[in-house]
Every structure is written in C-alpha cells, then in structure tokens.
Nucleic acid binder design. Structure first.
Lengths: 201, 201
DNA sequence: GTTAAAGTGGAAGCGGTGTTCCGGTTTCGG
DNA sequence: CCGAAACCGGAACACCGCTTCCACTTTAAC
C-alpha cells in the first residue's frame, strides 16, 4: 500500500511460467550472444528460447539490458578468478592463471569481447566492473603480485582492463578456432608484465 | 574498338570536375572515417565533401570500396614504416620505432582500427596487407630483428598483425585523448617481444 | 556554338532490426 | 471451479542507413 516502503526493492514473485521462460530466454541468450556477439538479433534469442519476442522484452526492457545481464555474469567470473589468484601459493602463478582464465572466458563468449572492446560506452563498462567487484579485486591482485615482486612496479591496475580489451579483440577473431593466436598474444603480454628479476619461490 | 585490347586496364581519363570531386570525396572520407570509424555514414561524407551521395557512389561502388581505399593508404604507411625500420642502425630501435609509428597511425584514424580489429573479413585484411607489401615488409623486419638478437626467437611475423589488432582496439578507445593508455599498452607488449639478453650496439 | 557523353544531386526505394501493442492464454488465489 | 491479473506470441510498426535512379547540369570534342 505505502508506496514508500516498496519503492526500490519491490521484489514480486514471478508466476511459474514466467520464471521458466525467463530462464529459457537467458539460456538462449547466453548461447546466441556467446557465439555471435552483439550482432545477435532479439528474434534469434526468442526463437532459440522457444518463446515470442514479446516475452523476451517482458523480462528485459531492451537489448542493452539483456546484454548487460549476460556480461555481468562473465564479470563475476573474472572477479572469482581474481579471488582465486590471491590464494595461489606463488604470486606469479596466481596472476598468470587469472589472466589465462580471463582469456578462456573471452574466447568462448564473443559477447563479452564485444562488450569489452566497444559496443557500449566506457561508463557502463566501469559501472559493471565496479558492481561485480572486479575493480576492487583487480587492485588486490596487482598489489599482491607487486608485493611478491612478480610483476614490474610500473604495472597499474588500469593496465589490466586495457590488456583485456586488446586480448578481447584478438580472441574474438573468427579464424582462431584452436585459440593458438590469443594464447600466444597473452603469453607475450605476460612476458611484458613480469618482473625480470622474479623467480618462483 | 577492339574490346580485348582495352579489357582489364581500361584507364579512361576523368573529366575535370569528376577528378576534383573525387579528391573532395576522398578528403572528406579521410576526415569522417578517421574520426568516427566505420559507423560514418555515406551521407556524412557527401555533405562534408559538398557533393551529393550519388557522386560518392559514382567514384566508389559501395561503402566497403571507399573504406578499403582509405585503409590501403594507411597500410602503405605501415609498409613505409617497416622499410625505414630496416635502415635504422640499431635493430631494436628500428623495430620499436616502427611499431610506435603504427600505433600513432591507428590512434589518429579510427577507421583503420575498426578495420584491423573487425569490420570486414580477415580475407580482405590479408589481401590488402599483401597488396600493399605489408606482409613481406613485416617478414623482413622480424627476420632482421631476430638476426640482430633484438627480439626473441619465438616471435613470428604473424604475431605483428595480432598485436596490431589488440593495439587497435585499445587505441580507438574514446577516453584516451592523450594517447597515454595505448602507449603504455604498446610499451608492455614491446617488453614482451624484446630479447632479454639484447643490448643496443 | 552545338551536341553527345559524362557527371551530378538528392529524393525515394529497400532491406534489415529493435521495439511496441494487444487479443488470446495461463496461472493461481479464493 | 471461476475470474482477475499476469503473461504470452508474433504481426505490425518505426526508424535507420546503404544504395539506386533519373531528370538536370557540365564538360569538351568538333
């Protein structure tokens, strides 16, 4: 009744069919956008999900909202990877494995590549990174790696999104089915970040 | 008269006004595409050039043809830079300056970034690189740098287009007016390519 | 100066994609 | 079991940008 009490957090339970369809749409979207990136059409998603376009729009106000929902999931995975990196014994190994994981994720999801390399304004990108705890987690990993002397002192947290941008552009390349190209690219970049005087403990 | 003699190389001199307009279109296109990349509209180019769209289409069959004409110019600059790299005394300095120059070019032309990172199929990209002598020049620079021990033995010519792809994605970023970000990125990549045991002669 | 060929401008055509709208259907509390 | 509310499907709509088309203008050869 009181419009104030239920203003921002107005969580209303979805009807059974609605909840099912929402999942179907999300699953279909993950697949379509993962393969075709931003150029995926809303109609494709609807068809794949076995629902009408109207249903897609009922759950997501527009294409951007759907895309951001998908991308947020991926960003959460990036964050999770960063947390794991902090727990690895050897700081360099943790750092390296984290970026590697990020590469794998990009390689198997064209949408996240498109998103990171462009597709939407930088503000949204940063907002989502912040929301999903990625910005903070990145700072932590960098600090940790620096403390251990694993990466150069000149490396800054902001260098990571930049690298992900470059890596994303490479990873979404259509003619790299084996992933050989992006792996080489990442390998060179890691060499550029590593502190030359570091040796695993 | 004989259709055979003038078949493939049928160079007909353009009328004076046509030649003038062609130049205007090219100049306008360089500016528009340079700033806005592939999303530039044909109408924009026409307006900027002070001609009708029809005139643009008279000189270039479609948008792709216009884009490729512009990009070919840039690729020629890449090639030219590579040739200069071979003449520099210190192999590492030559190599480094070349990639730096490539970065500058990408930073001031969003279209070439779009082209290198996507926008068109890889076949066209490779075809133009071949046409403009870039592929060959790249092989030469890599070989030269390796001979001098400036870059790691593991570096291959194909790694350069890959790096340019990543660099292009970074360089076209709208929020990097000073170029600080792409320069840092390139610097790290160079560190990854450089042979650790090399010292300038 | 005359005329045929070359060139021009820009309105209209067209294909493609995100989004809306609403008659019909499903859910679920009472 | 009933009815209101929530939900669904997909045709229709709206918009946008590349490309075409042709009546009109300019060039340049004779």
């Amino acid at each position: 009744m009181n419009p104030v009490t239920e203003q921002p957090t107005a969580e209303k339970p979805l009807r059974a069919d609605a909840r099912r369809n929402r999942e179907r749409v999300l699953a279909a979207a993950r697949k379509c956008f993962g393969e075709q990136g931003y150029e995926t059409q809303m109609t494709d998603v609807a068809r794949k999900a076995g629902v009408g376009v109207g249903t897609v729009y009922r759950h997501f106000p527009d294409k951007t909202a759907l895309v951001e929902a998908l991308v947020a999931e991926r960003f959460r995975q990036f964050t999770e990877g960063a947390r794991k990196a902090l727990e690895v014994e050897d700081a360099w190994a943790g750092f390296r494995e984290w970026l590697w994981r990020c590469g794998e994720i990009q390689a198997e999801d064209r949408m996240v590549c498109d998103f990171i390399t462009e597709a939407v304004g930088a503000e949204r990108r940063e907002a989502i990174a912040e929301d999903e705890g990625l910005a903070e987690a990145t700072r932590a990993v960098i600090a940790h790696a620096k403390d251990a002397g694993a990466i150069r002192e000149t490396v800054e947290p902001e260098d990571i999104p930049t690298m992900m941008c470059g890596l994303g552009a490479v990873a979404r390349s259509e003619d790299d089915p084996s992933g050989r190209v992006w792996r080489r690219h990442l390998e060179f970049m890691l060499d550029g970040l590593r502190d030359p005087s570091y040796s695993a403990k």
